[in-house]
Design a protein around this nucleic acid. Structure first.
Lengths: 133, 133
DNA sequence: CTCTAAAACGTTATATTATTACATACTGTT
DNA sequence: AACAGTATGTAATAATATAACGTTTTAGAG
C-alpha cells in the first residue's frame, strides 16, 4: 500500500491566491497579489500573507528570497518543496525553477562539518539568461 | 607577476559598519546596525544601506537573504563572495558560513539546461544545530 | 598644484514589505 | 450540540528599503 497523501484542499483565499500565482508568467510580490485580488474581496495584507504562508508550507508555491516574490511550484505538486533551486537572470529578472535530480540529491545528502543535519535548503543561481547574454 | 588586488580601503561609514558586523557573533539587520552606529554619527537608513551595498559588493560581508541580515565573510577576505553557502538553525537561528571547497566547486561549475551561465549563487541550508537537536 | 570625475556623505521624505492584535466565522470531529 | 482547529476580516503599526536632493571628499590626470 502506498503512502497516503492528504488532499490539501485549499481554502477560499488560498485558492484565489494560488490561481493568480499559478497563471502568472513571473514571480509575484505580496502587494502585487493584493492589488490583483481586491476585486475578489481580499482587502488587507494579512489575508494575503496568511495564504502565502500556508501555500509555501504545503509546497504549492515557493518564495524567491532574494526578490521577496512567489512562484507556483512546477515540480509535480512539489514533493521537493524542501529543496528548491532557482535560476535568476540579473538583467530581465526572469526566474525559473531548476529541476535537476542529481543536484537536488547531492544537496539533500550534504552534511556539514558541524554535525548539523539539514532538512531543507534554498539555492538561487544568478546570471544572464539566453536572451540577455 | 601575480595579479594585483585593489586595496579596498573602506570609507569611514563602511569601516564603522564593517567593524560592527565583524565583531558581532550573529547576523545583524540594517536597523539594528543603524541603532548601534548612531552615536558615531550615522543617523539615517540610506547611510547604512549604502555602506552595506558596497560591503556586499566587495565581498567583506554577505546578506542572508532569508533573514534580511548581514554577516562578515569568514573566508580569507572572501575570494568567493559570489558563491555563498550558509547553514541556518531553525530553532536558535545561529548561522554559519559553510566552507566546503568541493561543494562550492560543484555549484560553480553547474550549468542548467536552458543554457544559462551562472556567475553567482547563494545557498541556504536549514536544519537544527548540534545544540538544538 | 589644480582641475575634474567618481565616490561617499548627509538629510528628508516616502515606498515597500510584513506583522500584531483582536474579533468573528467556518469545518470537521466526538 | 460542543469543541478544537483552521480560516477570515479589519485596523493599526512595525520593519525593511529606496528616491531624490544637494554637498563634501577622494583619487587621479594634466
Amino acid at each position: 500500500m502506498t503512502k497516503m497523501h492528504k488532499e490539501n484542499i485549499l481554502s477560499k483565499n488560498q485558492q484565489i491566491i494560488f490561481n493568480l500565482i499559478n497563471k502568472s508568467s513571473e514571480p509575484l510580490k505580496a502587494y502585487t497579489i493584493l492589488f490583483n485580488v481586491q476585486k475578489k474581496g481580499i482587502k488587507a495584507p494579512p489575508q494575503v500573507y496568511r495564504a502565502l504562508d500556508k501555500l509555501v508550507e504545503i509546497g504549492k508555491i515557493h518564495k524567491i528570497e532574494s526578490k521577496n516574490a512567489f512562484v507556483a511550484c512546477k515540480n509535480s505538486n512539489c514533493e521537493i518543496s524542501k529543496a528548491t533551486v532557482f535560476s535568476i537572470c540579473e538583467n530581465c529578472e526572469i526566474i525559473d525553477e531548476v529541476s535537476d535530480v542529481k543536484l537536488s540529491k547531492y544537496l539533500s545528502k550534504f552534511n556539514d562539518k558541524n554535525g548539523m543535519k539539514f532538512k531543507r535548503f534554498n539555492l538561487e543561481f544568478f546570471g544572464l539568461c539566453k536572451k540577455c547574454k
